[in-house]
Amino acid sequence: MPETNRFVVHLGELKLRDRQERRFEEAIQSAVLTELARIDFQGDVVARFPREWLGIWIDVQGGLRIDDKPAQAFAPRPG
């Protein structure tokens, strides 16, 4: 089972009206989206290190490009 991140808000015995419940849901989703928007793992930058790069780029404006060729250019030089 892969690791997951799951957050639960438990409000105990509090009974919310439908409209209130929706507002809570919207507020929680908004908070999650805000934090997600700030995430940048820099994962695409591994393109600089093609030996570790498994990704495939789709350039929406320029067509598909598969970044396996630069591996030669970045490979350590012998000696």
Partner: peptide, 13 residues
């Protein structure tokens, strides 16, 4: 394995 990119950037391979 797919990442979408819209244009070439300075740190692109």
């Amino acid at each position: 394995l797919v990442i979408t990119e819209t244009r070439a950037g300075p740190d692109r391979a």
